[in-house]
């Protein structure tokens, strides 16, 4: 059925987001109910280096740093 979806859970762990690091590390993990291997791979593709989701997260983190330093 088109449009129906299954609620799969994925978590991106942002590690060591600090002023001493140029860029935090990202770890992708999946929780039950896990997406299929195909979609796990698709998610990995967007969170890996230069991946679009990773770029968006990094842009949000940079925005946070800018707002923080404007305090």
């Amino acid at each position: 059925m088109p449009g129906s979806s299954s609620a799969k859970k994925a978590t991106v762990k942002v590690i060591e987001f600090s002023q001493d690091e140029d860029e935090p590390r990202f770890e992708l993990s999946f929780q039950s109910p896990k997406p299929s291997a195909v979609h796990q791979a698709a998610l990995r593709s967007v969170i890996e280096a230069q991946g679009p989701l990773r770029v968006k997260i990094l842009a949000a983190l940079q925005q946070f740093v800018n707002d923080y330093k404007a305090k």
């Binding site: 059925m1 299954s6 942002v14 987001f17």
Partner: peptide, 21 residues
């Protein structure tokens, strides 16, 4: 300006069932 965080970003990817299977 000091900050040091580690946190989890939880995503809920919505995959169409037919495509996933």
């Amino acid at each position: 300006f000091l900050y040091d965080f580690t946190f989890n970003v939880r995503t809920l990817p919505s995959f169409p069932r037919r495509h996933a299977s």
